[in-house]
Design a protein around this nucleic acid. Structure first.
Lengths: 200, 200
DNA sequence: CTTAACTTGGACACTGTTGTCCAAATTAAT
DNA sequence: ATTAATTTGGACAACAGTGTCCAAGTTAAG
């Protein structure tokens, strides 16, 4: 991205970080905050915000870029290509589903405001993690193949999203969510077998 | 609602109908059209629109009311309380899932613009249909009970919504959607020995 | 055909948002 | 302690949306 670091002062660095942090949060909540709201939440004047991000578009772009990096790191650390696919999936859901959901919402917001063109450049390696995991599960005979991969991925995210909505609305407790989600997602993806051995 | 019919002229009646029709469509698509857009799409001047609906809020209110009536009629005609719950559910999904989804989006839009207070008066008898159907399925031992009813209802709608999004985006063909949906929803709701709670 | 209802076209005030600009104050770095 | 980067406070223009108003034109209904 930038080979030339313009030697920024520490307070500028701090403000930029704060702005991206709160903006990620606000946009990730599915809202569409004004620049004034972002600036206010970051404890900064509007002029400062515009000093760092010349336009709303560039702000969103920066937020997306940051989120991709962060999400990708998290998912990579989860080593989703290890262990049987259903085990890896459970690990993913139990520990990181809010991250996945936030990234999804951010992406939706960005899609609405930037259009699909500007978003395509960020070639979604984040979403690819899940894609590959589910495909692996299918290949290994753990996940169902009577429904197309794309559709399975879609429903997976749909359920995550629903859980996040319910949690936000306080209709399910954050502590109950992982269990609910894990069971739902696994029973959605795994092969139907009525002959399950009882070992757990 | 209205015991006093104000003796409207025929063209006014026509315009009101057109406005509600296009507004339902625009809001039901998940967009948030301006009054000008609604008026334009209805083939009417803004002044006329405001003549019938004094404010944006009242327009949305009218659209919601209309949608509830229409949706409720459709669902009632489906006689969801007849046949085994899974059969009734398949009937519902195969024939009327777009209606259900449109109503959901409308409700979301209204929630965002009117707030939850003004929306509570429309006491959601529409959503109740599905609620009762799934409960009946649980009571009859056809649907799983290892997940709470509310959560099952939520995921049901989440999957419908996802299908609608995919269809809108052209990623699944409208002809393939009912099959995909039916299979997904049924395998999500129906009982399987796999999902029995570990202990107890 | 006449009246009353309705629509039109356009103007207007008001609000919220984006984006720009600048002089003065503050703060980090050397 | 000096310099240069950065923030501040506020003003400003431009634009889009809501809601109001009205005089003149059109249309349905008796």
């Amino acid at each position: 991205m930038s080979s030339v670091e313009p030697r920024r002062r520490a307070d500028a660095e701090r403000n930029i970080a704060a702005i991206i942090r709160v903006a990620s949060d606000l946009f990730g909540r599915g809202q569409s905050p004004s620049m004034a709201e972002v600036a206010g939440a970051a404890g900064v004047r509007r002029a400062t915000l515009y000093g760092h991000f010349p336009s709303r578009e560039e702000l969103i772009d920066a937020v997306i870029t940051h989120a991709i990096t962060h999400t990708d790191e998290t998912l990579t650390a989860l080593a989703l290509d290890r262990d049987p696919a259903d085990v890896a999936l459970e690990r993913l859901v139990r520990t990181s589903w809010p991250i996945l959901d936030r990234f999804r919402r951010l992406r939706t917001a960005a899609l609405a405001e930037l259009g699909s063109e500007r978003l395509r450049r960020h070639h979604d390696r984040t979403l690819h993690h899940v894609d590959q995991l589910i495909r692996r599960g299918q290949d290994d005979g753990l996940f169902r193949t009577d429904l197309p991969l794309d559709w399975l991925v879609t429903t997976f995210y749909a359920v995550l999203h629903a859980a996040a909505d319910e949690a936000d609305a306080g209709r399910i407790s954050p502590s109950a969510a992982p269990d609910l989600l894990t069971r739902t997602v696994l029973s959605l993806l795994t092969l139907r077998r009525d002959d399950l051995p009882e070992d757990t």
